[in-house]
Design a binder for these strands. Sequence first.
DNA 1: TAATCGCATTGACGTGGATCAACAAGTCAG
DNA 2: CTGACTTGTTGATCCACGTCAATGCGATTA
Lengths: 250, 250
Amino acid sequence: MSSARTVRSEINLSVIKTACSNCNLNELCLPLGLSEEEMTRLDEMVTLRRKVRRGEHLYHAGQEFHAIYAIRTGFFKTDVLMGDGREQVTGFQMAGELLGLDGIGTETHSCNAIALEDSEVCAIPFSNLEEFSREIVTLQQHFHKVMSREIVRDHGVMLLLGTMRAEERLAAFLLNLSQRFTARGYSPADFYLRMTREEIGSYLGLKLETVSRLFSRFQEEGLLSVQQKHIRILDIAGLKKLMNPTRPEA
Amino acid sequence: MSSARTVRSEINLSVIKTACSNCNLNELCLPLGLSEEEMTRLDEMVTLRRKVRRGEHLYHAGQEFHAIYAIRTGFFKTDVLMGDGREQVTGFQMAGELLGLDGIGTETHSCNAIALEDSEVCAIPFSNLEEFSREIVTLQQHFHKVMSREIVRDHGVMLLLGTMRAEERLAAFLLNLSQRFTARGYSPADFYLRMTREEIGSYLGLKLETVSRLFSRFQEEGLLSVQQKHIRILDIAGLKKLMNPTRPEA
DNA sequence: TAATCGCATTGACGTGGATCAACAAGTCAG
DNA sequence: CTGACTTGTTGATCCACGTCAATGCGATTA
């Protein structure tokens, strides 16, 4: 149906045409809720696939913005850097999630997006996205929801950073990962972390030593089994209780 | 030109029709960038004015979402509450800024919006906003930018909460307020805080005593003059230097 | 002008997490 | 397999900020 899928062989192999309509992520990603017909129209949107290898940037802070990226496979972190080198990780993103929303406002990316494992993304030129979302109401609504949910997620992180204690933060973090892995069909209780202790710490506003100690303590307490990056959650309820301590008095 | 502005006298006075085209805030608010003709079309959008008195909620977390609110006059805070009563203030909003973006994703507000002084907002039914932004490209683009900037702002708060020390946080907070007052034509250096020390502390991830002590210290150091809620910034450069300490070594 | 109330200031002291430091365990190149 | 390097663990100590408590101050009402 779309002759645009023909790829001239001399083109860089890491940049190839892709189609939402036969992507198994479309239930998690931008096309959610679109009819088959709308989805094939979405395919017309010039979406290029791009490979990003572990450690490489998908985009840099300061770089000009022109596309939103949907993660096809892999795992990313986004961060912002302070003048003196301090880093704040603002999020970890996995398959089906969008990257680059931060760039719309100023037409310049405001953070760095770095692959934590070899990954593949679909690039969606933003002008196309805006054009299509004027025509396809479902797409417009869904896109607005995605942005709004990002804002709500950020508020959750503020709550975490502003008012939770270290152990609550790590528990919240693990439960969040668990839930997202589940949504992707992976085990809720058994997974490999793609990020270092330092990156976890940066995200949670803690130092890597504190994160490491907490992992050890959670293990001692029978909540987790930890072998470096391999985590098994042994007591989900216990973790949840850590996060939501019933108020001491009253 | 718009007969819709006729107000039946029996209608609750706190809910009256309003028009963007003769609002002096339109350079800061949603209509930014619209042509005169587009602006008059925007007026057709059923925008109702609503008064919210000091201490009252504009909306509650959990309440059903149907409108975005543009602040006409006044000052708000938004916050999220934890099960055990801990509060995280997620932002302070002033004239021309939008409230309610958090509700789009789930069609339910995820935070509380509370007036810190007697205020007035314009309610913009979200379905209308989506409809109009399908027709008016400028409006669509501007709305997307506003949402994106909210995300970027939130990342800034994460940076603040996750990696800055107490004095850096307060300096950043004051400079941010100063800049926003300036954009509204007020003095960059002389203003009244509308929020308590506790609310500032909640926003900055600090306790009210720490905030109070920092105000005192900044005053001793000649950076500020503080008399309760009346702040005069005496040394903007000094505050900026506090926020961006040149790295000690290297 | 006194009484009440909410908010702000200040001091004394305690502590959660940071810092500093040593070491262990992976990982990768050759 | 070896050595170099990155990442993770653990202990000892420190300190920025929290906690607890007393006092002050300004606004409001009587």
